[in-house]
Amino acid sequence: MTIAPAQLSDPVVAAFVTAVNAHDKEAFLAVLTADATMSDDGSDRDLHAWIDKEIFSSGGHMNVQSESDGGRSLVVDYRNDTWGEMRTAWRFTIAPGGGRISRFETGQA
């Protein structure tokens, strides 16, 4: 059973998922700190190049299956036009003050 973004425990992570699913790059970037970083399968990636390729130019979509760590760790059925659908794990670091994501890590679950 999928968890709707509005039902996620962490509102910042919920905004991230909502922006991905709406293909709203402006809202997506607004939820990240200016110096946000990310990794994919354990390797740091260029955030802007990665999101363009894996999310915004390929129709990325997150179906959240479960959450833990107060909503900062998700198991997601992620799909895009490049890779199809795969089960992925996402971990989020929220910047001090709680308003934005300073790092996210994803990889196969």
Rank of each mutant, 00 (worst) to 15 (best):
W90R: 02
Y78H: 05
V75Q: 04
A14C: 07
E85M: 14
A4T: 01
T37Y: 03
I101N: 00
I94F: 05
E67I: 04
D24C: 03
R87T: 13
W50M: 10
N80G: 05
E105Q: 15
D40H: 13
V76P: 02
R87D: 05
D81G: 11
D40L: 12
R79N: 12
E85H: 09
S68H: 02
T82R: 15
H48V: 14
N80M: 06
G99R: 14
R103L: 08
D81S: 13
A109N: 09
V20A: 07
S58R: 03
I101R: 02
R91G: 14
G84P: 09
A109T: 10
A36C: 00
M38Y: 01
A49Y: 04
Y78S: 02
D40G: 03
L32M: 11
D40P: 03
N21A: 04
R79T: 14
V75F: 09
N21Y: 07
R79L: 10
T2I: 11
A27C: 08
H61W: 12
H61Q: 12
T93N: 12
A4R: 07
P5V: 01
G99S: 14
W90G: 11
G99L: 13
W83G: 15
G84V: 11
M86R: 15
D10Q: 09
V17Y: 08
I51E: 05
R45N: 05
V75R: 08
F56N: 08
T33V: 04
D44R: 13
L74R: 09
I55T: 03
D44H: 13
A14I: 00
D24Y: 01
I94W: 09
A15G: 06
M86Q: 15
P11I: 07
A109R: 10
G70P: 03
Q65N: 06
A6I: 04
E85S: 14
M62H: 00
F92A: 06
A89Y: 13
E67P: 05
N21L: 01
I3P: 10
M1V: 11
G99F: 02
S66Y: 04
G71C: 00
F92D: 03
A6E: 06
W50Q: 10
V31E: 00
S102Y: 00
L8H: 04
I51W: 06
K53P: 03
R72L: 08
R45T: 14
A49D: 10
D41I: 15
V13H: 08
G107T: 08
K53I: 15
I55D: 01
Q7P: 09
F28G: 06
I51M: 10
W83P: 00
F28D: 00
A30P: 09
R79H: 14
G42H: 05
G71K: 05
D81E: 13
H48C: 04
G98K: 08
D46G: 10
W90A: 08
